[in-house]
Design a protein around this nucleic acid. Structure first.
Lengths: 248, 248
DNA sequence: ATAGCTATGTGTCAAAAGTACACTTTGCGA
DNA sequence: TCGCAAAGTGTACTTTTGACACATAGCTAT
């Protein structure tokens, strides 16, 4: 019978979520705003997150948090990884803030990060216990975040970039019907570089991932775009046949 | 001041490692062998792992475990993810075994999985507290593992497959010098499919990832192969220039 | 009504990459 | 010296990528 080692870790575990949204122009992330309590007197931002409950699966915890923040269910949600540096909560500002909010601010907390893709049209702001004030911040305007959240965000973004090259998950950020430019702009926003318009269209159409609807934009001061929708069957066929790269 | 929620989780956290090795013929995984205590009387296998200590970073914990098992340091090690299903330790056989080994077998344990790539020539079996008996099992001979370890293994393998298409990490599984067939066979073993010999060679040489040494195999009953080694500078140049796919 | 604006929508050509495929070579061993 | 077994090599064809420019549709302002 092995003795219990008193140096074994017995931490709290939280789930933090990078929630991506797309406003047809740029990629945004839902962040919680926090007033700094030290001399800087400024605001700082953090990823939404919460401690995980007993009997709660990690994925379920992330779904719950996501739902409490956005009112949404059945949302694309993917694990980024676990972050457990013993000093991850030890920046001075973070410690002050934790002290004001938790009974045991010095406890070690390991976090399991997720990222999720939501359609901004479906989003309804919610009052949430763990996020008094939230806002959608454009990716390129995000400053240094609290805790190790900048690290989490950049890893989540990298995962999203890698993934979107392999699977057309971007559709989760768009409404049912969308124009080709919206889709195009979405890919450019995620990948952070320009993509040739014609080549992009050619590829999407060859893979038959989108299909045209008999409907056009109205009231736009230029040639109206046809609307398109995502073709899920063709996507599934691609996955089954071992398709593995978009090659943009 | 927020009240502490008594339903918040306070689990143990472990690190489990999928250790891959390559014997020039097939991909193998280092597993620990465990005697079953129930009626089945058989043996079953699990991934090596251990609880994480206080003040220990997740990556450090995985390195420690890896070192205790293999005697190796500075080994390629990558996180697979966190696995925290509340029932992940609740198969009957697993519960019996846990009871015999731990004081609080019912405690919830969240595990952070890693995979690592080791050169079998460097491996020296170690006596370890958490693994009385270990063996290298060929990937295709691995039966159902204990706990949720089969799930962890398959996710680790998938990550390895994805990664090796993007970065030449396979060299970690080989000695300094190796033949082209060994490298070729390694890629086939990881990807689980045949690769054309000539096309494979052409690609590796075009990317200048390997360079020829002035040395040949000796004592083999056929035309001896030249030895090659990995060219790290060219690899780094590739990464910097944004190279992102091998396209096998 | 018409001229101008703005984003949509479309095709071609050249370069690169991928795929399929078979025979000669080298050194050992019988 | 003959046979064996794996090493090593080239070509032809197909597919994919990447670069690039102009006509079109509907709205708006005059």
């Amino acid at each position: 019978m092995q003795q219990k080692n008193k140096h074994e870790l017995n931490p709290r575990v939280s789930a933090d979520i990078v929630i991506f949204g797309f406003d047809f122009n740029q990629l945004k992330v839902l962040l919680i705003e926090r007033e700094n309590l030290d001399a800087t007197e400024g605001m700082s931002q953090a990823l939404p997150g919460d401690l995980i409950y007993e009997n709660e699966d990690l994925y379920m915890a992330a779904s719950r948090i996501l739902n409490e923040l956005t009112g949404l269910n059945n949302i694309y949600l993917e694990q980024v990884g676990a972050f457990g540096d013993p000093n991850r909560l030890n920046k001075e500002q973070d410690k002050l803030w934790l002290k004001s909010v938790r009974q045991q601010p010095d406890e070690r907390v390991i976090t399991v990060a997720y990222y999720s893709l939501v359609n901004l049209n479906d989003y309804v702001p919610q009052a949430s216990s763990f996020a008094k004030s939230t806002s959608w911040i454009p990716l390129n305007e995000i400053a240094e975040l609290a805790f190790d959240h900048s690290k989490i965000l950049s890893k989540a973004l990298q995962k999203l970039k890698d993934k979107i090259m392999m699977q057309p998950i971007g559709f989760n950020l768009l409404p049912e019907k969308f124009t080709f430019s919206q889709l195009h702009k979405l890919y450019e926003s995620i990948l952070g570089r320009e993509l040739d318009k014609r080549n992009f269209r050619r590829k999407m159409l060859k893979l038959k991932l989108v299909e045209s609807l008999d409907e056009k934009q109205e009231g736009v001061p230029h040639k109206p775009s046809r609307y398109f929708k995502f073709n899920e069957e063709n996507y599934n066929r691609l996955i089954e046949n071992g398709y593995d790269n978009f090659g943009f």
